[in-house]
Structure formats: C-alpha cells, structure tokens
Simulated assay, not measured.
Amino acid sequence: MKERTTALIDPAGRLRSASTMLRSLQVYEYSGIESLLESKSRAEDLLCIVLDGDFSNVEEVKCLLERDGLPPLLLVAVSDAEEGKRWLDHGAMDFVVLPGRREELDSRIGAMMSWKSTLLNPAHQELLHRKTLRRLAHDLKNPLNAVFCYAELLLMDEHLTPTVRTDIEHIITNANVLLETLDSKVNFHREETESQPAGDERS
C-alpha cells in the first residue's frame, strides 16, 4: 500500500514539544487548513491530521473533510473540553486538552493511525464490500419476490389476452433471472469468505 503521511498544523510548536511520536513520523507541516487544502497532491495521501485548534478555524474543517474518498482523521489540540466538543460537532475524530493532558497526545495520535490503517487495509475494505453486497441483495430480493408473486397471480386470470399474458411471462422470467443472480453473488461471496483462513489478509 502507498505510504501515508501525517499533516501537522502547529504554528506555535506546542504539539511537537508535547509529542514524542510526531518526531518519529513522516510529517508535513502547514501554516493552516487553507494551505493544506491548496496542497492537493499531499492531502490525498494523508493518514491523519493533527492541528492546534487555537490557530485554526473550526468552520474550515468541513471543506477538508468533504473531499472525495476516505477523508483523513482529524485530531485537535484545544484549551478546554467545550471547545473540543465544538470541533467534534464539525467532523473532528478526537481532541486532546493541552497543556493539562499532554500525556494523552501520543496515545491519541497512535490510536488514530491504527484506526485509519485498518480502514485502508484491503482485506477490511473487501469485507465491507461483501457486507454491503449481502445487504443490497437482501433489500432487493423482497420487492423482487413481490413482483414475481403478483405476476403469477395475474397469470391465473383466464380472461387475459395473449399479448398481456406474454408480457406478464416476461416479467416473471426477468424477475427470476434477477433473483438467481443475486443468490449466486451472495452464495459466491459467502463460500469465498468461509474458505479463507482466519487472519488471512489479501494484498
């Protein structure tokens, strides 16, 4: 997988001084959210963003998190919990109060990077795809079964014209094709999942 990086918005330097982890990561520093948004090539590869809330506008974070694809996770350093809640309401993943709880900064950065790495893992994405497919198949099968059953009831009418009868038979045929296709897709992914050894991750 392509290497992902961390963005840091820390004009006063208080996050770097409070974090040992930030010194060991591949970090790109920006003066603010606006400059990060302008740097599209790097922003697309970001794993997470750590920023000093005292130097950032909470309203700007919405633009950052509305990007296509999986947005970076955002950790904000704030002066108090009330300010942190406001950031959470605007899309931040987590916050840490500084300077009162400096010891939490590294653990929260590490947790965010672990979460994002899991989300980006191909095996995890494949699992989500299979779950989505099964849910979609289930949601589609109920109305398709209704179409199939009502069409069969209509065929019981002895007064149908040949043209109408043929049209209804087409409905039944195509409803059957869709049901069989959904069943085969769901069964294929179920068998593939069951045959995959536990802990096996595909790249």
Rank of each mutant, 00 (worst) to 15 (best):
R67Y: 04
P72D: 04
E59T: 07
V78W: 01
L64S: 06
G84Y: 04
N57D: 15
V61Y: 00
L75K: 03
V78S: 00
R67N: 09
W87I: 10
W87S: 04
K62N: 13
E66M: 15
C63L: 07
A81P: 03
L88M: 15
N57P: 09
V76T: 07
P72W: 10
L75W: 06
L64Y: 06
H90D: 05
L75A: 04
V58T: 11
V78K: 02
G84S: 10
E83R: 06
L65S: 05
K62F: 13
K62Y: 11
K85E: 13
L73H: 05
E83D: 10
E83V: 09
R86L: 14
S79I: 08
C63Q: 09
V76C: 09
L70H: 05
G69W: 15
R86Q: 12
G84K: 02
K62T: 15
N57S: 12
P72V: 05
C63I: 05
A77K: 03
L65E: 02
W87P: 05
L64C: 09
R86A: 10
E82Y: 07
S79E: 07
V58G: 02
E60K: 11
A77N: 07
G84N: 08
L88Q: 11
D80V: 02
E66N: 15
V78M: 02
K85N: 09
S79F: 04
E66T: 14
V76F: 11
V61G: 00
S79N: 01
V76G: 05
L73N: 00
H90A: 12
H90M: 10
P72M: 06
E66W: 00
L75R: 03
G84W: 08
A81C: 09
V78R: 01
L64V: 09
E59H: 15
E59R: 14
A77V: 06
L74Q: 01
D89K: 11
P71D: 03
D80R: 08
E83W: 04
D80G: 12
L64N: 02
L74G: 03
E83Y: 04
R67H: 10
V76H: 05
L75D: 00
A77L: 11
L73G: 05
P72A: 06
V61W: 01
S79R: 11
G69P: 11
L73S: 01
L88V: 14
A81L: 12
G84A: 14
W87V: 08
H90K: 12
L70F: 01
H90F: 11
L75V: 12
V58N: 10
K85I: 12
E82K: 10
N57L: 11
E66C: 14
L70E: 09
G69Q: 15
A81V: 08
R67T: 13
L75Q: 03
E59G: 01
W87H: 02
L74K: 02
D68C: 14
N57T: 13
V76Y: 08
V61P: 00
W87T: 03
L88P: 08
K62C: 01
E60M: 12
E60Y: 04
V61I: 07
C63W: 06
L74F: 05
E66H: 03
L70T: 14
K62P: 07
A77S: 09
L70I: 12
K62H: 10
D68G: 11
N57F: 10
V76L: 10
R67S: 13
V61T: 03
G84V: 02
G84Q: 04
E66D: 15
L74P: 05
L73A: 04
